[in-house]
Computed example of a mutant assay.
Amino acid sequence: MLTGKQKRFLRAEAHHLTPIFQVGKGGVNDEMTKQIREALEVRELIKVRILDNCEEDKHEVAEALAKGAHAELVQLIGLTVVLYKESRNQKKIVLPKATK
């Protein structure tokens, strides 16, 4: 679970990223979540764009992507979803420490 400070840090890191996946009319499926998991292992932080023709609610899509990819939902802004998952082998992002 990410703290508010960590989410702010990740939002700033994700600002310059371009979406590398798109969710369209077909919605979220197993193949897509598998590819997102693989991309997160390499990149740790990605953006996913929800297209206008997607028939599902954007909040449901964001939750399904996060759950399917076993990732943290950092942000849903407009139709763009930001996901984070710490990489096992290729750790690049160092999160700020959680303060108590």
Rank of each mutant, 00 (worst) to 15 (best):
Q90K: 15
R43N: 14
K67E: 15
A69Q: 08
E72S: 15
S87D: 05
D52E: 13
L79F: 03
V74T: 05
E55F: 02
I46P: 01
V42I: 14
E56K: 06
H59K: 10
L51T: 10
I46E: 00
Y84A: 11
V48F: 03
I93E: 12
L83M: 13
K58T: 03
V42G: 01
L76G: 02
A39T: 07
S87V: 10
L79M: 07
A71W: 02
T80R: 12
Q90M: 14
V74P: 01
G68V: 12
N89F: 11
N53K: 10
E44A: 02
K58L: 04
Y84H: 13
N89S: 09
A66V: 10
A66T: 06
V81E: 02
E44P: 12
K91C: 08
K58H: 10
Q75K: 10
S87I: 12
A64H: 13
Y84I: 11
A69M: 09
L40M: 03
L65D: 06
V61K: 00
V61G: 00
I50M: 04
L73P: 10
I93N: 13
L79V: 02
I77L: 13
I77M: 10
V81A: 05
E72I: 06
R43D: 08
C54L: 00
Q90N: 14
I46Y: 03
T80L: 09
G68E: 08
K92P: 09
E86F: 02
E56G: 00
V82K: 07
K85L: 11
Y84E: 09
E41C: 03
L76A: 01
K91D: 04
A66G: 14
V48C: 04
A39D: 01
E63D: 10
C54T: 07
L79E: 07
K92Y: 03
E86S: 12
E55Q: 10
K47P: 07
E56H: 06
V74N: 06
N89Q: 05
L45D: 00
E55S: 06
R43H: 13
